[in-house]
Design a binder for these strands. Sequence first.
DNA 1: GCCAACGTTGGC
DNA 2: GCCAACGTTGGC
Length: 136
Amino acid sequence: MNYWLVKSEPSTYSIDDLKKEKQTFWSGVRNYTARNNLKAMAKGDICIFYHSVKDPAIVGLCKVVKEHYQDPTTDETAWVVVDVAFLEKFKKVIPLGEVKNHPKLANMELLRQSRLSVQKVTQEEFDYIILLANGK
DNA sequence: GCCAACGTTGGC
DNA sequence: GCCAACGTTGGC
């Protein structure tokens, strides 16, 4: 089982939207590295939901419920989606500025390669983020 | 295969 | 709105 981080601009699709819908297909990835990460996701993997651009922060969790398949929003066969289900919205979100303050999170791809929209997260990083979200 | 030009993402 | 980082495209 693996951990991931997926990004979305809240004005496009927020954690609240996912909470309302309970489940969605994660579409719109048009970058090969991110696409490869989508393909590597397995059912049951956990994804950290990150809001980019406006109030950038780690805001919650979702779960892979269906592995990758052709992106229904395009005819180009290069692109795929996965289905994710809402798990939780953190009561205490973790702003990007705070992520930067924690040495244990300093190596996150989020900080090193900020443009990648689907990233791998290590078990250690994930555990620490859960600690922070629970008020530390 | 190299590299310049250009477009996009995302933080601030 | 600006700019840095990065990916993609296209000329050679």
